[in-house]
Write a protein that binds this DNA or RNA. Structure first.
Length: 649
DNA sequence: ATCACACGC
DNA sequence: GCGTGTGAT
């Protein structure tokens, strides 16, 4: 079903003018899309024991002539071995190189870091050679390791992980999987060297060099072969643009951002932790007093039994799919008015969440060299094209509630000569909906610089904009969210806690007022049914194998994906293009200010105070111009500065 | 390992 | 809709 709770019609006869941005001139034919897939992963017959290979160990006096040989290549596959998965805290154990399939070289580097630096110095000319194309699997990792030793790869890049990401965004893409799938070859498992993962897992530094040589050289060899297998698919699937213009360049931008990290105010967090602990304990005790018994309030299972069996708070309490009572925030909120205990439970939940996930863990995740936190961006995880962030996740720092927002005060500039800048897109996803649907009312609202939720409410409730009251705006905002998520009428009712009847009424009005949106949703789903994929403005594709499923639920999910992915994905493309541009302009102008965070529609900078007035308009201009939208829908971005992230916002 | 929950966009 | 982290089981 679509937003309006209707089944999406198959061939409504609409000739799909509105969705034409998604059916570009070079509209690929369905057959092309599905060819070139390797057969599903049967156990691969080939491995290092039964396959010809020439893997060489290079050390000492052999290095100079080896480097000379590499200098003559145009394309080199490169891989590092280290003693840590965290590239910001890793020592180089060795490097492997390959430029001919079946042949590779391993150069070990010793624990003595001064010695390692001497070896790297011999490779300086190679790393700086601008005419070399560096091939690798997850090159960001290797580039980050090298950056800590003071080196960059100055030529161009081809990351096989990113290539596979744009070819098959929802696939698995560890090197082992790719090798099995595309080369029919099973690489040496890492467990053979350092043991099974867990606390007993060893360290690459302690493995004998001959063993590492085979493993590491094979990695470079395989990755080079993967490049040759994947490159033609970029072309046959028509995803070269998003690969070469977005993902591949972004890799170097993210490397620099992860290297910088952001400073956190540990004293502030420690103080705040005590405060949260005190208040959480107070709420907890209050709950036990009201319940008349003590239990583990952090256990949803126990809490559900107390609320709905002992206290009988709701005779028709909802259950989760595993048969427990549901005690999520939405469920409890509906009971909050009549039951003081529920307020205390919600307070406890909020406070313990803030404490454990953010306040107590951030200080522990500081890098030992920099004292800063260096998030890691996953560039090939989110199926829509977004980045994700982990260790720590800096894309879900609280902002909604007062006490959560407080945590943003802990993110601070690196020193007194810097401030934080935060630049964010305004309503970017809705602007994209307006632009690609071409809905006249919504496009016009943006062209006139209106508050989109108020403008929506005015139309849906048929009143003047000045007469839109809070509740009308709030509900209209929820409908707009529903569109972005391809959510059904059920979802809206659920979301707003209103009846299905009222939800349907709001939706019927919306449908009349914004008929172009309805048409976009129909056209997009129909396009997906016909072609098996949907795509963004930049040509990032997502294949939807379930779009023609006979199972109502499964198909419905695919239909929501069809509607949501081009929107979320286009927004992702836009900010990624902006990041590449900003990075380039900063470099050209030799600015010392650094881009340090991305939060989907926001960029954060650690800016040198004297540069603030120069970089602010540059950042905004790059963001606004990154990806012009059709139908004259303007793209707006705002920027602020401050001595912490909250203030900058 | 999986689930429920809660945080973000 | 898309993610990640935590604590419980």
């Amino acid at each position: 079903t679509d937003l309006f709770g209707n089944a999406v019609a198959a061939g409504k006869g609409s000739p799909k003018p509105a969705a034409k941005s998604f059916a570009p001139a070079q509209d690929p034919i369905a057959e092309i899309i599905n060819e070139g897939e390797a057969p599903p992963s049967l156990p691969a017959p080939r491995n290092i024991t039964n396959t010809d290979h020439k893997y060489h160990l290079i050390q000492g006096e052999a290095i100079p002539s080896f480097v000379d040989q590499l200098m003559g290549q145009t394309e080199i596959c490169f891989d590092t071995e280290t003693n840590n998965l965290d590239a910001n805290d890793a020592e180089l154990v060795g490097m492997s190189f390959s430029f001919i399939p079946g042949e590779a070289y391993y150069v070990p580097t010793p624990a003595d870091q001064a010695e390692t630096q001497k070896i790297l110095l011999q490779f300086a000319g190679l790393f700086n050679n601008p005419s070399i194309k560096w091939v690798g699997q997850n090159l960001k990792y290797d580039m980050l390791v090298l950056k800590w030793y003071g080196y960059e790869l100055k030529g161009s890049w081809f990351d096989t992980m990113l290539a596979h990401y744009v070819i098959e965004p929802d696939g698995k893409r560890s090197m082992d999987m790719l090798s099995t799938q595309f080369l029919g070859y099973d690489p040496v498992p890492i467990e053979d060297l350092i043991g099974k993962k867990g606390k007993s897992q060893g360290n690459m530094r302690d493995v004998e060099i001959e063993k590492i040589k085979d493993y590491a050289a094979e990695d470079a060899d395989i990755t080079l072969q993967l490049k040759h297998a994947l490159q033609p698919l970029l072309s046959s699937k028509v995803v070269e643009k998003v690969f070469y213009e977005v993902e591949n360049p972004l890799l170097a931008v993210l490397t620099d951002m992860e290297y910088e990290g952001i400073k956190v105010d540990v004293n502030f967090l420690n103080d705040y932790s005590l405060e949260l602990d005190k208040d959480a304990k107070r709420s907890e005790e209050s709950v036990y007093a009201q319940a008349g018994l003590r239990f583990n309030l952090a256990s949803p299972k126990q809490l559900g039994e107390v609320l709905f069996e002992k206290l009988q708070l709701d005779p028709k309490a909802k259950k989760t799919k595993t048969g427990q009572y549901a005690t999520g925030e939405d469920v409890l909120s509906k009971l909050a008015h009549q039951n003081k205990i529920v307020e205390d439970i919600l307070a406890f939940r909020e406070l313990t969440k803030l404490k454990s996930t953010y306040v107590d863990s951030l200080p522990l995740l500081r890098n030992r060299k920099t004292g800063r936190v260096h998030t890691s961006y996953a560039q090939a995880v989110a199926v829509t094209g977004r980045l994700s962030s982990n260790n720590p996740n800096l894309q879900n720092i609280p902002v909604r509630t007062e006490r959560g927002r407080e945590i943003r005060k802990a993110f601070i500039p690196r020193d007194e000569n810097h401030v934080l800048l935060s630049a964010d897109y305004s309503q970017i996803e809705l602007r994209i909906v307006a632009a690609i649907s071409g809905d006249p009312a919504m496009c016009e609202a943006f062209q006139q610089g209106k508050d989109i939720h108020t403008a929506t409410a005015a139309r849906v409730y048929n009143v003047e904009e000045k007469d839109v009251v809070k509740e009308m705006r709030y509900k209209a905002k929820s409908v707009n969210f529903g569109i972005i998520y391809g959510q059904g009428a059920f979802g809206l009712a659920d979301n707003l806690g209103i009846s299905r009847t009222e939800a349907k009424e709001i939706i019927d009005n919306y449908k009349k007022q914004f008929s172009g949106i309805q048409r976009y949703m129909d056209d997009t789903v129909n396009f997906a049914r016909e072609h098996g994929y949907v795509q963004t403005l930049v040509g990032r594709k997502r294949w939807l194998r379930d779009i023609n499923s006979s199972n109502f639920t499964v198909r419905g999910f695919a239909e929501r994906n069809a509607i949501n992915s081009p929107i979320q994905g286009t927004a992702a493309d836009m900010i990624k293009l902006a990041m590449v541009k900003i990075h380039q302009v900063f470099k050209e102008n030799k600015f010392r200010s650094k881009m340090i965070l991305q939060v989907h529609d926001e960029l954060v900078f650690d800016a040198v105070k004297e540069e603030v007035d120069i970089v602010k308009p540059i950042i905004l201009e790059c963001m606004r111009q990154a990806l012009p939208l059709p139908n004259n829908v303007p793209v707006e971005a705002e920027i602020g500065s401050g001595t912490n992230w909250l203030e900058a916002h």
